[in-house]
Amino acid sequence: MENTIAVKVDDLTVAYNYKPVLWDIDLEIPEGVLMAIVGPNGAGKSTLIKAILGILKPIAGSVSIYGKPYEKQRQLVAYVPQKGSVDWDFPTTALDVVMMGTYGSLGWIKRPGQKEKKAALEALEKVGMLAFKGRQISQLSGGQQQRIFLARALVQNASIYFMDEPFQGVDASTEIAIINILKALRKAGKTVIVVHHDLQTVPEYFDWVTFLNVKKIATGPVKDIFNDDNLTKTYGINYKVSIQE
């Protein structure tokens, strides 16, 4: 069961100018894992996700989703961008943003109808934001905005979720709410890939981890590879994380 590969990355190399941001990444992500991508600032964590999703054009390499090229499998993939990547003063409501998650399956020109609205309301309920559906998005707190982004991805009803730092700048209660949703997704057999900063919570939240610093350092089950050796290799200094066991 565990052996189905959901995402396969081959020889992925990305450069912004002259310096490579990602170098020759090979990665296999098994279906049904909740995976953290960790690494220092500038390690290329967000870049890796963006390159996999075709937002950035890689210099070399290929990505396949369940054995087929990503372009043919888009509907299986949902993306939660960094909260800070959009202007939250945009004139729209929470419900409207979540509805955008249905645009992909609608395709060009077709407008969202009752079915799409119902799906969006359900997603809002899942993230505990139903009461805020009509709220102008600039009037939401950082944690609430993050939940809206999460709901927008949930509406897509994808098999694989890519999330770029969903815990950044949210309070403790939102963090718990979000991780519970991610764990529920895994339980439902979905694959969830998260760019993560807080090393302390990796063993508690995730069952799979990838160490990244321009090159891939290691990838595998948290219980096998989340150790001082890999942390030191990734972060360059003698990094000690006390894992209580």
Binding site: D87, Y103, G104, W108
Partner: peptide, 22 residues
């Protein structure tokens, strides 16, 4: 009016729009 939905989502979040296949 025809491309209202596409205009709106591009204005708000271009990267996300790309991942939806537009």
């Amino acid at each position: 009016l025809t491309f209202w939905k596409e205009f709106k989502i591009l204005l708000f979040d271009a990267d996300y729009t790309k991942t939806l296949g537009f």
